[in-house]
Structures are given as C-alpha cells and as structure tokens.
Amino acid sequence: MGDSYVTEPTFVNHDTGPILAIDCHPSGKKFITCGQKANNCNGLVVVWNMDPVLDKSKASDENVPKLLFQVESQSQSNSCRWSPDGKRFAFGSDDASVSVWEYVGRINSLGSITGGAQNVERYKECCILRGHRMEVLSVEWSQNGRYLASGSLDYRVIVYNARKLPDQIAVLTECEAPVKGLSWDPIGKYLTGLEGEKKLRFWATDSWQCVTTVTEPFQNSKEETVLSRLDWTPDGKFLMTPAAVQDGQPLIQLIQRKSWKSDNFFAGHHKGTTCVRSMPRLIDVTLKNGKRSQLACAAVGSRDKSISIWCFPGPKKPLLVVNNIFNHTVMDFAWCDRNLLVCSQDGTVKVVNLSENLIGDMISNEAMVRLLARLGTRLHDSWVKWSLL
C-alpha cells in the first residue's frame, strides 16, 4: 500500500447497528452517518467530529468531542447528505419521509433530544418531506444548492426546491423499478437515477424530461442490494455506476457524457459492486512522458467486503485494493481531502489515508470551481464560498 494506511475509529458506531450511508461536511471538519440501531431497530443519524477520526492524539483527548449531534427516528435511515453550503443535512428513511435539519449553533448543556450521548451542536428539524409512498432509498442535493432529490421504492423521483422547502419542482414518475441511487451532474445539466439494477435514466434539469436510458451494462445484473451509490466524475465527463455485470464479472460501468456510451469500466471485485464515489476534485499527475494530466480518482465498494481505488483515464487496474476490510457489504464512501471514509453494513467505519505518492496532487478548490464554470455550470454563491474554505 506504499505510504497509505487504514485506521478504524471504533468510537464511530451505531451501537452495532448497520451504517448505511456516510457524508463529509463541506468544511471537512465533521461528517454524518445514518442507518439503524441494533437494539431497537430505530433509525439513527449521527454527526461526528472529524478531528479525533484523523488524529489519534485528539481521539484520546477527553476535551475533544467525538459525537456532535444525534437523532433517533422510528424507522431505518437509508441515505444522508449535507447541503452544499453545509448549513443543512437531509436523510431519507423507511417510513417514506425525507427529514431536513438545519444547524443552529453549538451548545454547552448536557443531554440530547434522544436522552443518549451528549450533543455539542444544535440542529432543528426544519422540514419533513412526505411526497413518497414507500421507503426512501436515496437523497442528493444538487451541487449548485438549488435542488434536493429523493428516490424511492415507489418507482418515483421527487425534485424539491431546496431554497423553498417543501415546494416540489418535479415528480418523475416514468421509472420502471425502485430508484436505488441518484446522482447530480456537477455541471448541472442532468440528474441520473439507477432503477433496480437494470436501467440508468438521465433527466435534463432544464425540462425534467428523460433524455436517455442506458440498459446494456445491466442485462445480466442480479437484484442483490437495496441501496446503490452512483457518482459522476468531478468534471462531469463520466457517470460511474455500480451493479453492472459483463460476462459474469461485477463492474463499475463508466457512461460517457452526451454519447452515453458505456465502453469503459472498473473490474476486479468478485461480488456485486454497491457504491462508487469520486474525489470531489481532479488530481494532477505527471505522466511517464513528462506531461501533466488531470485525472479523476474514485473509490469502489462491493458485497465482497473489499474496496478498490481507481484513476481515470488510466490503466485498467486499480491503484490500491484493500481486501476484506469489513465483515459485511461496503455501503458508502465520503472523501475528506486524501482521507477516504468507508462505512459498512457490519456497523463500522474505516479510514483509508491515501499518500501523495499513490495519487498525486489534487488541484485546488479554486481551480475546480474555474473548471466547472468553464464547463457551463452556474455555481451557487454559497457553494463557491464553502468550496474555497
């Protein structure tokens, strides 16, 4: 693994219940997990301090809080994401709701709204979205901060006006299977949904009309997981999706923007792929011929309990493989600079620190903003502000 290493912050847990989703705050100073408590099957959402996860000395310092906030709900939480400005988070649950919470400051008093561990930060529930009829499997904010989308077992995607919740922008009803995963194009032109494990659907954000569907990579896929996490490369050139299969080999398929061709893929896992997440910025590398190139770096998780790290475009083999890192399925990823946070259905979180020797230098936040601006996105002012922190 070179200079890269894996750590396990054992204090990050859901009382042995599964951790189904994880997301890093835009500031990089905290992160959120959601899933279920093992002892009572309630849903659990926890905001954690990043410092003790990345710094062992702070993990042993009693004055450094580990848990910042937690909320229990009556049903399992399947997906959680921070808003681009970092002021809110949303989570979708088995009771068909999407709950949106807003940060309102730090507190010094003991206790929490659930009577559990001490809360350090205060959040208020600002909205409960009840547009779905069945379990909500995915929630995703658009990168410009304008929209919040949710996908459900009810075969529908709902797009909300994130600035005027609970107003709905569109209800996308043409799906032919449960919507297991969603991803917003970073350039702002498309919303993508994975239906079952059989079809990708791309909607145009200017009309909310379906512009194309992609089925070929999924013809031999099996219905093995309820949740799938897909993602675009940070420059919006490729959509990366789990659940693809070719000649019996589980793949992450790369769908090229506009042509919608699926000629490229990541292969190597021996059980179905469940999640893929790219670094939010491109990396700058020097090729063997001395030329500089900008590549996307992405993490892949699988039911085989292993993860792999890939660069694209690049060789057809991963930069790094960590086998049997968990005792159960890999569910989701969150990037914090060179640190990759990984959660599993076994109820644990691992942190993979990737060295500069392995992946090169990330381009700056400013350069990434300029690149996306050149590619046509209109970034929300608050997202630009947070991305420059």
Rank of each mutant, 00 (worst) to 15 (best):
S355Q: 00
T377Y: 05
D361T: 14
S364Q: 13
R374N: 07
V352Y: 03
I363K: 01
S355M: 01
A367L: 13
I363S: 07
M362S: 13
G376E: 10
D381N: 12
I359V: 13
L372R: 06
G376N: 08
N365L: 04
R378S: 12
L375Q: 01
I359M: 07
I359C: 08
L375N: 02
N357Y: 07
L375R: 06
G360V: 06
M368G: 10
N357L: 09
V369S: 05
L379V: 08
I363E: 03
V352T: 03
N353D: 05
E366K: 10
L358T: 06
D361L: 13
S355E: 04
G376L: 11
A373W: 04
D361A: 15
V352H: 02
L354Y: 07
V349D: 05
D381I: 05
V352Q: 00
V369A: 11
D361W: 15
E366V: 10
T348I: 05
L372Q: 01
N357S: 14
V352D: 00
T348D: 10
L379N: 04
N365Q: 09
T348E: 14
M368A: 09
V351Q: 03
T348V: 12
H380E: 14
N365A: 14
N353P: 03
L372N: 07
I363F: 02
I363G: 05
V349N: 02
V352A: 00
R370C: 11
V352C: 04
H380S: 13
R370E: 14
R374M: 09
E366Q: 13
T377P: 00
E356C: 09
K350T: 05
N353R: 10
K350G: 00
V349M: 05
I359P: 00
D381R: 14
R370K: 15
L379W: 09
T348M: 13
V369D: 08
M362R: 10
L358K: 07
D381F: 13
T348N: 15
N353I: 03
G360D: 05
N357A: 13
A367T: 02
A373K: 08
R370Y: 14
D361R: 15
K350M: 04
E366M: 11
L379T: 06
